[in-house]
């Protein structure tokens, strides 16, 4: 990504996450920023997960989700993993290198393999 490019929130929030091997693994539900030494505000992480999504809808829903899931499905991806931002957010790693990228594989392994002709290998 060129240094001078200005990004707006719209380029990040709800944008598609695509891994280096071309897999769609989810959309950005939220972002986390950090104060660095010297008073710099830096975008640190992209967040995905039901709690973060619920927080976008209503506060009480986030509380409910937190009670139900206890943060189990909340995933963060450091912004250093971003290779470029276009129609999708391109990540440097392959799908299996991210926790959120592993859920498809989990479903295939634990559910789809029991259904015939799923092509599970």
């Amino acid at each position: 990504m060129s240094e001078s490019e200005m990004l707006s929130m719209r380029d990040l929030m709800d944008n598609q996450l695509e891994t280096a091997d071309g897999r769609m693994i989810g959309r950005v539900a939220d972002v986390e920023a950090e104060w660095r030494d010297g008073g710099e505000l830096v975008l640190a992480n992209l967040v995905t997960g039901p709690q973060a999504l619920a927080g976008r809808v209503a506060h009480w829903l986030e509380v409910v989700m937190r009670f139900v899931f206890r943060g189990r499905f909340e995933r963060t991806i450091p912004t250093s993993e971003i290779e470029g931002i276009g129609p999708t957010i391109k990540l440097r790693g392959r799908a299996e290198e991210y926790l959120v990228g592993q859920s498809d594989r989990w479903i295939a392994r634990h559910i789809l393999r029991y259904i015939p002709w799923s092509g599970y290998w």
């Binding site: 769609m24 959309r27 498809d104 002709w117 092509g119």
Partner: peptide
Amino acid sequence: QGFGWEWGEEKLPAEAPRFNLVLT
């Protein structure tokens, strides 16, 4: 598409698991 999952009818179910789980 709304949740950003792998989708496509051309793919095997195991290649787009959430898409195929949802449709089932």
